[in-house]
Simulated scan of single mutants.
Amino acid sequence: MSSRRSLLFIVAIAIWALAACNWTVGDCYPREEWTSGAGAGPGSEPTPVFSSSASGDFGDAPSGERRGDSEQEIQCNKTDSSEEEDKEERPRDSSESTTNSTCSGSGDTTGDGQTYVFCSDACSSKCPPAGVNGFSPTIFKFVTTIPDDGTGESGGWQQASVRLKVKRWVEVYPEFWECPQMTFGMPLRNAAQGHIPADEAARISADVATKASRKVMRANLTIPRGIYCVRLKDEMDVSLRKRVAGSRVTQP
């Protein structure tokens, strides 16, 4: 009975010693190299090798095995949780960031009154502030083509021909284009507004053109230029007819 207990005690010590040899802290050879016998002489048994903090101390792993190309030392007994922590601490690769996050060039923060500038959220600093962006009434130079004879509910006709310019800034660099000539036409007088002077016609036209430009662009930030101009003309025609009875927007 005594010999059996002694045998069990010896087996327990052997198991404990084996576990201790397979658990290390600090730098060491990779475990797969122990089993393959890398770095050992023929017939030698795999033995855990501990590194020392001093350069050239006994047990230091060869530099080619201890460090990889990235100069990162081998870490023994690293748990899954520590690997996750390292992933969180690593800086994100700069190549993952989009190149479109920065808009290059100087912005149109003052507005010129001749160009509607549309900016995406990323390029918002390049656009004029609210109330400044859009078309100025000064580009709508209305002239009378048919005098008002004073008869009927409406009379006379006035019109202004313009080429509306557009600047779109939704990516790194802006795009510029100019829509074909459009003509804004209004009666000189109608039943709803009464007499409509040229400066009032210009103010209404500029407001209609600015709001229509914004509406069409917001509906599709990457709309092709030619399609944009067609839809802009149609949107302005509908809006102007609602603002002033008898008015219209046409193209030659």
Rank of each mutant, 00 (worst) to 15 (best):
R5Q: 14
L8P: 00
I10V: 14
V11R: 09
I13D: 02
I13G: 13
L18G: 11
A20R: 13
C21L: 09
W23M: 15
G37Y: 01
A38N: 14
G41P: 00
G43N: 09
P46N: 09
S52D: 15
S53Q: 15
A54M: 13
G56R: 12
E65L: 12
R67K: 07
Q72N: 12
C76P: 04
K78G: 04
T79R: 12
S81P: 01
E84N: 07
D86C: 07
R92H: 10
S95W: 13
S95F: 10
E96N: 14
T98Y: 02
G111Q: 03
D112F: 03
Q114D: 14
T115F: 01
T115D: 03
Y116E: 02
C119I: 02
D121M: 06
C123K: 00
C123R: 00
G131Q: 08
V132Y: 08
P137L: 08
P137D: 04
F142Y: 12
V143C: 04
V143K: 09
T144H: 01
D149H: 03
S154Y: 11
S161R: 06
S161T: 13
V162T: 03
K167T: 09
W169L: 00
V172F: 01
V172L: 02
E178S: 11
F184T: 06
F184K: 10
P187T: 12
P187Y: 06
A192E: 00
A192L: 15
H195E: 15
P197G: 09
A198W: 03
D199T: 14
D199M: 07
E200I: 14
R203V: 12
I204A: 03
V208C: 04
A209C: 06
K211V: 12
R214T: 08
V216P: 05
R218V: 13
R218P: 00
A219R: 14
T222R: 07
G226D: 13
G226L: 06
I227W: 00
Y228A: 00
V230R: 11
L232P: 01
V238D: 15
S239E: 10
L240A: 01
R243G: 02
S247Y: 01
R248G: 12
V249E: 04
T250H: 07
Q251W: 01
P252D: 13
